[in-house]
């Protein structure tokens, strides 16, 4: 980062450029295993390994009621201050909404 070039910084040529523009912003990440994460993006690499801060993870589980066979959808939430997420579990990343 010797000379920051605003023009180059803002150019979106490939998918990962969109993620670069989300550095230090809150992003949404959908992961395998019915997990979703919201957190501030602090680092990533080409595998989509990431470090996120102020993370809220939501886990969704579906249970079948023994008697009615109804699907009971349960969500569990937890917060984690700093989290490394391995990229191979990432399904999609959604950058923050820009107005």
């Amino acid at each position: 980062m010797a000379e920051p070039e605003p023009m180059e910084e803002a150019t979106v040529r490939e998918p990962l450029d969109l993620i670069r523009l989300s550095l230090d912003e809150r992003i949404y990440v959908k992961l395998r295993g019915e997990r979703e994460i919201r957190g501030r993006l602090h680092a990533y690499d080409q595998h989509l390994n990431m470090i996120l801060g102020d993370v809220e993870e939501t886990m969704t589980t579906v249970e079948i009621d023994d008697e009615t066979y109804e699907e009971i959808i349960k969500t569990q939430k937890r917060t984690i201050p700093f989290l490394f997420v391995r990229g191979d579990g990432v399904i999609l990343i959604s950058p923050p909404l820009r107005s």
């Binding site: 801060g53 984690i80 989290l83 490394f84 997420v85």
Partner: peptide, 11 residues
């Protein structure tokens, strides 16, 4: 590995 929870002081 799915996650590594990091010590806040060292980030």
């Amino acid at each position: 590995v799915r996650y590594v929870h990091l010590p806040p002081g060292s980030v």
